[in-house]
Design a protein around this nucleic acid. Structure first.
Lengths: 217, 217, 217, 217
DNA sequence: CATGAATGAGTATTCATTCAT
DNA sequence: GATGAATGAATACTCATTCAT
C-alpha cells in the first residue's frame, strides 16, 4: 500500500502557520483544477494563496508533496459518495432497509454525483497516475477502497444465492468498479453526453445483471 | 470528430526526406514509451533517430504534432484487436460460425492481448488525454470505434430477443467498453494482478450477463 | 593591523543574553568546522545553538561577524602552541634551561600538535583568507605573532654568533614560519602522510641549518 | 592521483564551437581572478565571453567543470616557472653549467616570478582547495610535481656528499617547497612587503643551508 | 528577549526554437 | 536537406533578513 508520507515532518505550527499552510493547500487545489498538475506552477499556487513565493517552501518541498495532500482530500470526498455500502445486505430488506438492487442504485447514484461535482479534480488525479509510479500507487489504494467493498458485497449475495456462484467476486468487483469509474470519466471529462437518471438506471441494471442478481420483483 | 490535421502539409518529400521523417516517428514512439509524453524531450527524439537536433523542425512543428502521428499508429493497433466484430451475429451460429457469446469472448480476448502487448503506448495515450482537449477528442474518436460496434451488436441481439429489451444499447455499449478498457488499464498499468484466462472468462460472463444474453446452452 | 571591530557593540547583556550569545558562537564553530565558512548557513548555526532563527540577529549582524569571533578563539589556541618562545635564548643553556635547538624543537612540536588538533578550524581560517581582504588582514595579524617572535629569536642568535650573520632575520622568520605552517597544512589537510617524530626532527634540522645554527655538540 | 576528467566528453566540435568554448574558458579565468571562485556567477562568465547565458551549458555542466579547466592552465604556467630543474646536478659545474646553488637560485627566482605574475589565479586555486576534496586532490597533484623534483635533486646532492646525509629528502623536499609557496603567498597575496632580489637571495641561502649544501666557494 | 512566519532578491538550470553555414 | 551552435524565456529553489507577536 502506497504511503502518504510528508517528507517535511509537520513540526508544531503556530495557528498562523496552520492557516497559511491550509491556504496553500486550498490554492493548490484551485490551481491544479485550472491548469492540471503538469502545467501548474508553484508561483501560481503561492499567488493564489496570497503569500510570497518563498513561503511555499516553508511548508512544502515540492509540487509533488502538496499534490499528495490535495489528492488525499479528493480521496475522502470520493469515498463518501461511494460504492455499495457495507451494511447493505439482502436480508436487510425485511427490516425496511434497502434491497441489494436499491443499495447498488444508491451507491451508483452517489458515485456519479461525486464524480460530476469533482470532475476537475478527477482528471488531475488521472493525470498524476500517468506521471509516476508513486501516484499510480496512491490511485490503486483509493481503488481498493471501492473494489474491497464491492467484493464483500458480491460475496454476501452469493452466500444467500442472490448472485451467481460462477462469478468471481474479486474479478467482478474490479470489473464493475472499472465500468463505473471509466463511464463517469468519458461522460464528465471525455465529452460523451448522457442523461443522469438514465445513466443511474442503466448502470444499475448492468451491474445487477452482471452478477446475476435477480429482479426485486 | 476530432481532426488529425498536420499543420505542415506533407509536401513532396524526397526519398531521403521520407526516410528521415519515418525515423523520427519511430524514435518518438520509443521515447514516448520510455519517458511518457510529458517528460520526453525533442532532443532525445532527435538523438534516438540519429539526426541532428534542428532536423526535427524540418518535419514537425512541435512535440504535439509528432505525438499525433504516433497516436494514430497506436489506434490502428488497438482497433485490430478489438471488440465484437460487426459480422458476429446470433444467427451466424447455424452457419457454423461463432455464437454471440463466443464472439464476445473472442473480442474480449483480443482486446486484452492487444492492451497487454501495447500497454506502454496505452499509458501515454491516457496521459495525453489528461493534457488537453484536443487529445481527449482523439481518444473519444478511438473509443467510438469500439462503442459503435458494440452498440450495433447489442441492438442486433435485442432484435432476435437474445438480449434484454430494457437495456439501452448506447449506454450499455459505453459502459461495457468502459469496463473492458479500465479493467485492462488497472491490470496492465495499475499494478493489479489477474490471471489471463480467468479474466477473459469472467469479463465475458459479466458482459453477457449485463446485456441479458442467455447461456449458449 | 586589521581590527576586530564588532559593529554591534557589546551592550550590557543580561545573563540569559550572554548565555545565548555564547551558545551561538559555540554552535558557529561546530558548523564552520563541519561545513566550512562558505557552505555554512545561519539557519544551521541557529539550529545547532537550539535557538530560533531570528535570535541570531539579536547578537550578530552577519555570518562574517560571528566568524570573526570564532577566528579569534582559534588564534588564541594556535598562539599557545606556538613558535620559539621569547625567553628561549642561547645563553639560557648554562642556566640549565633549553638550548636554542631544543627551544626550536619544542616550539615546532607544539605548533604541529596544535595544528593537528585544530586542523578543521585551520582550514576554515585559510578559506576565510581567500574570501576577502579583511580576513586576510586578520590572518596576517596572527602570522606576525609568530614571525615577530622568530625574528627576535634569530636576531639574538646572531648577536652571540650562534647564527649566520648574512641571514636576514625578517626574511628568515617569514620563510621559516611559512615552511612550518604550509608543511602542517599539506600534512593535516592536504592528504600527505608523515610520521610525527620524524617530522619534528626533520623540520627542526632544516630550521636550524637554515639560519646556520651550529650543532649543540 | 586526482583526475582531470570532463564529465561532458568532448564531442567533435566545429571550429566555431571550439572558438566559443575557448572564449568561455578565457572569460572564466578573468571572472575567477576578479571575483574568486565562490563569488563568481555563471552569468558573468557568459557575459564576459559575450555569449548568451544558455550557451555556457552547451559546453560545461557546472562552474566546477570549467574551473577545472582553468586550473589546468594555471598548473602548466606554474610548472614551467618551477623548482630545481631535474638536470641540475653537482657534477654539472665542470661542464660550465650551473652549480647546485645556482640551480636552486634560478628555480627559486622563476617560481617567485611565476607566482607574482599569476597571483590572482593562485589565490583562487588556494580557495578551491579549501572548498572540497576533489580540488584539494588537484592541488596535491600539482604539489607533487614540485616536491618530486626537489626530492630527487636533494638525493643526488647527498650521493656526492654535497648535502647532509641526515636530512630526509622526502621531508625536506616537502618542507622547502612549503616554504617557497607559503612565502610567495604571504608576500603577493597576504600583504607582506619584500624586496625581490633580497627574497631570492635569502630564500636560496635558507634552502641551501637547510639541506647542508656547502658554499660554492 | 525570543520566536518563527514571511519575504524576495539572486542564481542556477532546462529546453524548445531559430538560423547561419 | 542537414547541421548544431546560439538563444533566452520560463521556472525552480535557496537563504539571509525583517518584523509582528
Amino acid at each position: 500500500m502506497a504511503t502518504m508520507s510528508n517528507e517535511v515532518p509537520e513540526r508544531q505550527l503556530t495557528p498562523r502557520g496552520l492557516r497559511t499552510r491550509a491556504q496553500l493547500v486550498g490554492a493548490a487545489r484551485t490551481i491544479f483544477e485550472r491548469d492540471g498538475f503538469v502545467a501548474s506552477r508553484i508561483t501560481d499556487i503561492a499567488d493564489e494563496a496570497a503569500v510570497s513565493h518563498g513561503t511555499f517552501y516553508t511548508y512544502f518541498e515540492s509540487k509533488e508533496q502538496i499534490f499528495r495532500e490535495v489528492l488525499e482530500s479528493i480521496r475522502e470526498v470520493m469515498l463518501d459518495g461511494g460504492q455499495p455500502a457495507e451494511e447493505a445486505t439482502v436480508e436487510a430488506v425485511p427490516d425496511g432497509r434497502l434491497s441489494p438492487r436499491e443499495s447498488i442504485a444508491r451507491a451508483n447514484r452517489r458515485y456519479l454525483e461525486a464524480y460530476r461535482d469533482n470532475c476537475q479534480l478527477m482528471i488531475i488525479w488521472e493525470q498524476a497516475a500517468t506521471l509516476n509510479e508513486e501516484f499510480r500507487g496512491l490511485l490503486a489504494d483509493s481503488r481498493h477502497s471501492f473494489t474491497g467493498r464491492s467484493e464483500r458485497f458480491i460475496r454476501r449475495l452469493q452466500v444467500t444465492g442472490a448472485a451467481q456462484a460462477d462469478i468471481d467476486p474479486h474479478y467482478a468487483a474490479h470489473a464493475l468498479t472499472a465500468m463505473m469509474s471509466r463511464f463517469a470519466y468519458v461522460w464528465f471529462l471525455g465529452g460523451e453526453r448522457f442523461e443522469f437518471e438514465t445513466a443511474v438506471d442503466q448502470l444499475t441494471r448492468l451491474w445487477c445483471n452482471a452478477v446475476g442478481l435477480a429482479d426485486d420483483a
